[in-house]
């Protein structure tokens, strides 16, 4: 059964609590929280995977440390929407078990209630990130 993580549930609750237009401000708050990727990857861009579904240059890499998935994403500050998507997924999936990440419910993205606000075209980028995270993890186990 696909499920979401406790941190993803918190994010969902935060989005569901605020009025429609404030969701964008909330997304921007998440955008500001995206952590930098670790130094060892900063110097090795060739190790990162480009998320082709995103309009702006977004790169990701996952690592598995004793069955825990580490998720690292980069997105430019000039693309705050994409950065917000990256940050949300990073918070939702980082430090979760391999199985939890692989079974993470894709419906989480539409449950955020952002699709109409930011447009289905833009939200596709977020699906692209999630799919690629899952694919990388499945290839690494």
């Amino acid at each position: 059964m696909p499920e979401i993580t406790p941190s993803a549930t918190e994010i969902l609750e935060a989005f569901n609590e605020v009025p429609r237009l404030a969701k964008l401000d909330l997304l921007l708050e998440y955008a500001d929280q995206l952590p930098e990727i670790p130094e060892n990857f900063r110097d090795r861009p060739e190790l990162l995977e480009r998320v082709e579904e995103c309009q702006s240059p977004v790169y990701l890499i996952t690592e598995i440390e004793s069955n825990r998935v580490r998720v690292y994403l980069t997105a430019p500050v000039e693309a705050p929407t994409t950065r917000g998507f990256a940050s949300i997924l990073q918070i939702a999936l980082d430090n979760q078990s391999v199985q939890t990440v692989l079974e993470f419910d894709d419906g989480f993205i539409s449950s955020l209630g952002l699709t109409e606000l930011v447009s289905p075209l833009r939200i596709r980028g977020m699906h692209g990130m999630l799919n690629r995270i899952k694919r990388q993890v499945s290839e690494k186990i």
Binding site: L24, L28, A31, Q55, S56, E78, P80, T82, S119
Partner: peptide
Amino acid sequence: DEDILLYNT
């Protein structure tokens, strides 16, 4: 803008 949030920044 291309990015719907850029204005908000």
